[in-house]
């Protein structure tokens, strides 16, 4: 049995489990064996003093749902080895919230162009500092702060 830090429920009645980030991978493996075969989404939440990763799990056999949360400081283990579908969700969380996933096969930005500075869903992201994108010679995106350099 892997120790659970705390338990609660969301407003719609889904159980929530907090787990320490060291125990995340063994806990997730255990949950997969218990029948939670689908990972619906991976979310990052910025609580200013710490970051939190939220995993929504679903069992397609009996319809049970579970939210697994873990507190982190920018780095956490990737669950792509357990659910391959976590790949894009983790890339998106890295892109927008800035949580790095260890052992991820291809941890690159997915929605924003490569080279973008900052992670927009952080609460301290400067919304007034605009960045501009253009195409480079090699067909890849180039990002800069200069309005003349792009659109």
């Amino acid at each position: 049995m892997i120790p659970i830090e705390s338990e609660s429920k969301t407003k719609d009645g889904t159980p929530v489990v907090y787990i320490s980030k060291e125990n995340l991978i063994p806990f997730m493996k255990e949950k997969k064996d218990e029948g939670y075969d689908m990972l619906l989404m991976v979310t990052g939440v910025d609580y200013v003093d710490h970051l939190e990763v939220v995993y929504h799990l679903l069992s397609t056999k009996d319809g049970r749902r579970l939210l697994v949360k873990t507190k982190t400081d920018e780095e956490v283990d990737s669950v792509t080895g357990i659910w391959p579908g976590a790949n894009w969700h983790e890339r998106e969380t890295y892109d927008l919230v800035g949580i790095r996933f260890r052992n991820h096969p291809n941890l690159k930005r997915i929605l924003l162009p490569e080279g973008w500075v900052g992670h927009p869903l952080r609460k301290n992201y400067p919304m007034d500092k605009k960045q501009y994108v253009n195409l480079g010679e090699d067909g890849e995106d180039k990002v800069s702060y200069d309005p003349k350099e792009g659109y």
Binding site: T10, K11, D12, V16, L40, H56, L67
Partner: peptide
Amino acid sequence: SGESYVPTESPKGEFGVYVI
């Protein structure tokens, strides 16, 4: 206050908004 996620069946599949 709090958090909630209500799954619905959209034409493309499971859609829900996780609101905190």
